[in-house]
Design a protein around this nucleic acid. Structure first.
Lengths: 146, 146
DNA sequence: GTAAAATAAATCGTACGCGATTTAATCGCA
DNA sequence: TGCGATTAAATCGCGTACGATTTATTTTAC
């Protein structure tokens, strides 16, 4: 027997949990200067890559549901970053689009991303490999979650 | 130029964020049967490995501060899992200890851990390697966070 | 054509995380 | 010894996440 008791330091899930918290603590003050939270920043990243998505599309991409997204998008709308409009094709669907202000924020956000990238201290190939392993784990776990 | 726009799928921080959410979605219903949340479970894991820690010690181990831990521990105290007592040596310090009920929960929690381990679909050596890489990243980021 | 099923958002309540501040106890040092 | 600085926990407010439910719209099956 090499180990009788396991502690938090042995758990992969705790590694993910605490690393995610650590990254958030790095992002938070940087994004706060732009008036953003981390999930709000993710919404912008998503819309910068392709503008005009429904709440459901954003949810599938980010792994969130309307109970999280609706109030978050409402705040972003009040902040003038996005617009929310019911689709005329299907009134159940809400389309989310960038405002000029939301689009303009992309350049300022570049500095934030660079700052975070630097703090990770990883070479690009290491970073991509780790990222893909973590996405794989996420997808494996998600596929086995009822 | 191989890529003009980056999206959420390119970001290591998003991999961590969404993997952490996915793991939580797996844990949540399992832990709910025991009346626990994930951070509460982490507190128990910590105390099972070594009982009798101060709020500050728990905070350093889990990467949390009293603003998060105090209400969480209060709920665990109300649930009869732990006791909280001011140290007689130093009245500023609060000692957290397991109750019999909290100790007894370790065996039930074993099934939860096994279930999560299985859902990850990783061999032990792969799991340990990934875990350590993520801890390394966490520590690197934390060391560069002002 | 219409009622039931399905789908998309929104709403509500609970429990984190954390920045900022407060309260209380101990320490340091002149 | 005494008093300002430090330390530990608690308190407060805000913004997520999410289970459960509700509301509104569209699809379907007959």
């Amino acid at each position: 027997m090499t180990q009788t008791k396991i502690g938090t330091q042995d758990m992969l899930c705790f590694a993910l949990y605490s690393a995610n918290n650590a990254i958030n603590r790095l992002y938070r003050p940087l994004l706060a200067k732009l008036g953003l939270t981390y999930p709000q920043y993710l919404v912008l990243v998503s819309l910068w890559s392709e503008d005009g998505k429904t709440v459901g599309q954003l949810g599938r991409e980010l792994g969130l549901e309307s109970n999280t997204l609706t109030p978050l998008l409402k705040r972003m709308g009040e902040g003038g970053l996005i617009t929310r409009k019911r689709s005329s094709q299907d009134e159940r669907v809400v389309e989310v689009s960038l405002t000029d202000k939301g689009r303009a924020m992309q350049s300022e956000a570049g500095e934030v991303a660079a700052c975070v990238y630097e703090a990770m201290g990883l070479a690009p190939d290491e970073l991509m490999e780790l990222r893909d392993r973590i996405f794989q784990l996420r997808d494996e776990v998600a596929s086995r979650t009822p």
